[in-house]
Each structure stands twice: as C-alpha cells, then as structure tokens.
Amino acid sequence: MQVRLEPQGKQLTISGRRRVGAIVQSLGIIAGTVMVIRGDELLTDDEFVDDTDSIELRAVISGGVW
C-alpha cells in the first residue's frame, strides 16, 4: 500500500494487508494525533487497508502561538 504522510509530504510503501492501528503504530505515531484517510473516508483503528490501497496519514497537531 501507498502511505502519504501530511504535512511532511512523505510517501512510503508498506506491503501486505494491515489494520489501521498497526500501520500507525509501526510508524511510531501516537494514536489520535493523525487522521487516517482513504479517498474521501476516514478509517478507524480496527479497519483493514489492502495492499493495493492508498491512504493518507494527516497530522492534527498544530501550534506555535497562544
């Protein structure tokens, strides 16, 4: 599967069919700090992503000034 990390703009390839939660964990990302997007849908941790899918992991953390 193709995994795009935003806003870094990084593109990764992960092989095999995997659960969303496992993908996020394998990339060292803390659950709840990204949205996992496939097309126009959001995925929860228990869903599977197929080897042929493309997903986006979009960070939700922003900051700098209070």
């Binding site: 935003e6 806003p7 709840g32 700090t33 949205m35 997007i37 959001l42 979009r58 960070a59 939700v60 953390i61 922003s62 900051g63 700098g64 000034v65 209070w66």
Partner: peptide, 30 residues
C-alpha cells in the same frame, strides 16, 4: 480536541491549511 476539530473540518469539506507555520518548529507548545 485537535482530532475532533480536524475530523469535523474534514467531514464538513472545509479546505484548511494542513501545513504548519514554518516558525512553529521547536515551539515549546509542541
């Protein structure tokens, strides 16, 4: 939470800036 506002924006079709302010790198708040 940030997850909630990001999810809301996504579901409502709000085209927001995903990029972070370039000055925020290393900010204490982060």
């Amino acid at each position: 939470s940030e997850l909630e506002s990001a999810t809301y924006s996504f579901l409502r079709g709000i085209d927001y800036v995903v990029e972070e302010c370039p000055n925020s790198h290393g900010a204490t708040q982060l």
